[in-house]
């Protein structure tokens, strides 16, 4: 059996620890943090499929998150159906929308693609916040809590395992993208599309698949997030800040790596929880200080450590192995 790469061991250890957390911890606050870290990590992992592995940087992924959140919230609040049906509807809608965005990615590169994704999420924001008759408009939708698995009215421990399941699954997708034939083809397209085309890789189709998969994955977590948090606010779920957040976690952790999005989420979500708790009492609006730190961190990371935490770890490992040799 081939030895696991160091990153995989870290992932196994992290997910293993999370699996054991509910056995020892009953503190709702801590469990809540764990759930949010896993959900944010899964969202960033979903963004990473398009932004990292396929090189299609989207600043509008909140659109798919919002589609998932709204599908489930409307399904439960308006039609008294199971949120799982909403999840499936959200995935179906996101596949269609993701296909359209993926098609755009074939015509537009770099900043043009990012701009088109922003426009797309803004259109959904306007529709969701203005279509009062159906979406309840800018007031948002409270998601009713009905206990049970089928209605996703779960306790904290069950949520930890559900979020962990999604996180492990998404990590698995990333590993598949790193090791499979399709993954290598995608890397080829990302690095040099013309060369990949010359080798007979259907680059256009691959990019559409990657963006669509990424959209569907984002939508699933959007549904879980809405059901867990219990409220859907259009100005939050479709916001550019949210789209930036997916990217931020991934870039800080390590773009185009399996572990990166989860490491980034661990760091950023913990930092946010800590700073919120520290500064929220001081002055209204002061909670915004953590976003000033994020913005600055983003500028510094892309400039000085563009490969993120995982890349930094690899760099240090190389240096120490050289020192030992």
């Amino acid at each position: 059996m081939p030895a696991l790469a160091p990153g995989r061991w870290v992932a196994v250890a992290l997910f293993g620890i999370v699996a054991l957390v509910p056995a020892g911890v009953r503190d709702a606050y801590l469990l809540d943090s764990v759930i949010l870290i896993l959900l944010w990590g899964a969202l960033s992992a979903a963004w990473n499929v398009a932004g990292g592995y396929a090189g299609q940087v989207s600043l509008g992924h909140a659109a798919f998150f919002g589609i998932g959140a709204y599908s489930a919230a409307l399904m439960t609040a308006r039609f008294q159906q199971s949120p799982w049906l909403g999840l499936m509807l959200g995935v179906a809608l996101s596949i269609v929308a993701g296909g359209v965005i993926g098609y755009l990615s074939n015509r537009l590169r770099g900043p043009y693609f990012a701009l088109s994704t922003i426009a797309f999420s803004q259109v959904l924001l306007i529709v969701a916040s203005r279509w009062r008759g159906f979406t309840a408009g800018s007031e948002g939708i409270p998601v009713p809590f009905r206990p049970g698995f089928w209605t996703l009215g779960l306790g904290h421990v069950a949520w930890v395992y559900l979020a962990l399941g999604v996180a492990v699954l998404y990590y698995g997708v990333a590993i598949w993208l790193e090791t499979s034939r399709v993954g290598y083809q995608l890397a080829g397209v990302r690095e040099d599309e013309d060369a990949a085309e010359a080798l007979g890789i259907a680059s256009r189709r691959l990019k559409v698949y990657a963006v669509t998969l990424s959209a569907a994955m984002t939508s699933v977590v959007g549904t879980f997030w809405a059901q867990y948090v219990g409220f859907v606010d259009p100005f939050y779920v479709f916001s550019i800040d949210l789209s930036v957040r997916f990217a931020l976690n991934t870039i800080i952790g390590g773009i185009g790596t399996g572990l990166g999005p989860f490491l980034g989420s661990l760091l950023i979500t913990s930092l946010e929880t800590y700073l919120r708790a520290t500064f929220s009492g001081m002055k209204t609006g002061f909670a915004g200080i953590y976003l000033v730190i994020y913005g600055t961190a983003l500028i510094l990371v892309v400039r000085f450590v563009p490969e993120g935490l995982t890349g930094l770890a690899a760099r240090l490992r190389v240096r120490s192995s050289r020192a030992h040799a």
């Binding site: 940087v57 913005g295 500028i299």
Partner: peptide, 15 residues
């Protein structure tokens, strides 16, 4: 491009 996009996005968030 990606580095440039995220540099200005980071600047936007910070400001």
């Amino acid at each position: 491009h990606n580095v440039q996009i995220f540099t200005t996005v980071g600047l936007s968030t910070a400001l």
